[in-house]
Design a protein around this nucleic acid. Structure first.
Lengths: 197, 197
DNA sequence: GAATACTATTGGCGATGTGTCAACAAGCTC
DNA sequence: GAGCTTGTTGACACATCGCCAATAGTATTC
């Protein structure tokens, strides 16, 4: 990396951001300094602030990038019976998580800044997207019931924890995770929603 | 608070720790400085380091305190059929969480240091305790199966997420949370464990 | 192709946070 | 009240962060 070389603002911003994504995926927030980011990107530290403002704003961008997942496959979900729909959405979720594995898990657990209102908002939005996907997959996407969405978010939380047991701790196989998540979601659909809503 | 006044080491340590518990319960890790802790405790900043070493070690103690919950009630769990046992353990969990509400939730979501290996270890141990309690309540406490315990941890993860929807976001009532968690646990017991283990 | 304008990039300043340690002094013992 | 123990202080050295004026690539104009 040649110092002082000029890049298009978009390109430079993208380059610094990709370095930050890697570092924040490896270490928690307080252990990653803007100096580290600048050094690995081969630029002066001041440039990081120039493009992203503060360290926290940079981290917010990183979390946004990490949690942005392709929602494409959702459109062509099968329209079969509940078990088939549940199976499809769980498969989709496991594909997404396993593809982004470390960085996605690091972000969703707020690798070092949980409790901060801005960070929490970004994470909540990502969980909301996943929760809405689940509701849409089972044919409840149009409902605006807050309790319904709260339960869907709780289910996504379980899915996240389960993914950690699978991908980080390696105590569960993908088949076991799949079985756990499909069975649980079906039970919620059949026995909780009818009673509680 | 009179500066320079001598206290028994245990008393002084306890006093500083209680201040730290309050502050780390209010703000995430990076936004609480040791200067803040020292000021609120009415002591010199150096004394914080004297008693706890580094800021991270202080935070570790705080998380330990926040996550230490009374395990007493577990002994006198009913020995009825599965639905009764599940109902009892869920009730116990909700009682614990609602009693410690903010600080417990702040700690279990690692208010600012998730990803750090030491912090993660403390949190994992607390989740393990809860997961073991669940397994013990349903009569599987003696099993050492790692997959079993992994699924129990995933369930506890769902329980914590659900508790947040209840206590922090107020989109679920206690009754709804209770129904969601009992139904889910029963489904796991009846349909997942027999197949997967 | 040299002069010019534009702006991406640098490097250092001031403020704040952290870990360490020698010096101080509060309170006990004799 | 002298002396000892040790809880406590205050300051030093270092690292990190936000900021900004100065610098130097790159394109543009003639």
């Amino acid at each position: 990396m040649i110092r002082g070389r000029r890049l298009e603002p978009d390109a430079r911003r993208e380059q610094i951001l990709s370095v930050a994504v890697r570092l924040f995926g490896e270490r928690p927030y307080p252990e990653v300094s803007t100096t580290d980011v600048a050094r690995d990107a081969g630029v002066a530290r001041g440039l990081v602030n120039h493009y992203f403002g503060t360290k926290k704003e940079l981290y917010l961008e990183v979390v946004r990038v990490m949690l942005t997942v392709p929602e494409v496959a959702l459109e062509r979900l099968p329209v079969g019976d509940p078990p088939q729909r549940v199976d499809a959405i769980v498969t989709w979720f496991l594909d997404v998580v396993s593809r982004h594995s470390t960085s996605w898990l690091a972000a969703i657990t707020a690798g070092g800044m949980a409790g901060d209102s801005d960070v929490d908002r970004v994470i909540t939005e990502a969980v909301d997207v996943a929760a809405d996907s689940v509701l849409a997959a089972v044919g409840l996407g149009d409902r605006q019931d807050e309790a319904l969405r709260g339960m869907a978010r709780a289910y996504v939380g379980m899915a996240t924890y389960t993914a950690r047991e699978w991908l980080q701790r390696n105590v569960l196989t993908r088949d076991q995770v799949h079985l756990l998540l499909t069975t649980t979601l079906l039970a919620i659909l059949e026995k909780v929603f009818p009673k509680a809503l």
